[in-house]
Design a protein around this nucleic acid. Structure first.
Lengths: 146, 146
DNA sequence: TATTAAATAGGATTAATACGTATTTGTCAA
DNA sequence: TTGACAAATACGTATTAATCCTATTTAATA
């Protein structure tokens, strides 16, 4: 019995073909896709699956801790199958999210004032700016008004 | 001439009553409000202002660097008038965002591999979990399925 | 104070998400 | 193995957020 099955059982979730499909699709994704994106991806092989189910499933997975909902800037909600400690760079232009790791950053210690006030379940350094593809076009896109 | 006026002029933005109102409303806010929230807040004193204008104005402000768009988890887009270096705690339950500062965290050094690949304009430690008000209810809210 | 480009209001549209409900389907115990 | 039941699904509808369109207004400037 694999990790996924085990976790579902432990949390009292039924193992359905839809859930397996969503899990597989997200696991194999190198991006940080939205529900809509995963739904589109599944359509060819699983035409009957509904967007609502994909969305609910992803949120359920996030709640039980198989995946994460990640920070965006008003985008549709996006998900991350990578549950190792890592950090994100968010491109303000194309809205892609890039992962990175760094041993020094693992040392980041959360101040006591914070742990006293809140129960912390997630910790991430969030960088934003322009990715390599976008930064050359930045001058233009950042120019005009309103 | 105040900071706001100066910045608008420098960026070639016209100074309109709407922009001044939006700027004031956000500056005086202790939260990290959405466009809709600010619009509602302005309605009593500025009934003719449209949500579209509020939204466009906030995005414009973010683009010229007066304010920031902040990380959320699929929420409506939210804004932050605080442009000092600071960090965020995001409550998964009530979606409030709390600011915090810490001298140690100012020392965080972005790895070279990252600065080489991207142009970084924003840096923030993003914590998530449950705020003091919500953590006591956590047991219940985190329980059931789907 | 006349000109003009920029900005606004507000209705319409699109997109993302959530809801309601009838139906289907895993799960578990007999 | 099967029957019962709670859980999950599909899908239509509703809601909410964001954006677009365009006629009108307005701030800036000379």
């Amino acid at each position: 019995m694999d990790r996924f099955t085990r976790l579902c059982k432990a949390k009292g979730l039924k193992i359905t073909p839809q859930r397996m499909a969503v899990y597989e699709a997200l696991k194999n994704s190198k991006e940080h896709p939205s529900a809509d994106r995963i739904h589109k991806q599944l359509m060819p092989t699983f035409p009957s699956i509904s967007l609502d189910t994909v969305n609910r499933t992803l949120i359920t997975f996030a709640r039980i801790g198989i995946i994460n909902v990640v920070e965006g800037q008003g985008d549709p909600r996006r998900f991350d199958p990578n549950r190792e400690d890592h950090h994100h760079f968010y491109c303000l232009s194309c809205t892609k999210i890039f992962d990175f790791h760094d041993p020094d950053l693992e040392q980041i210690r959360i101040p006591d004032q914070v742990t006293r006030m809140f129960t912390i379940t997630g910790k991430r350094l969030c960088l934003s700016g322009y990715c390599n593809e976008c930064r050359h076009q930045k001058a233009e896109t950042a120019a005009p008004a309103n």
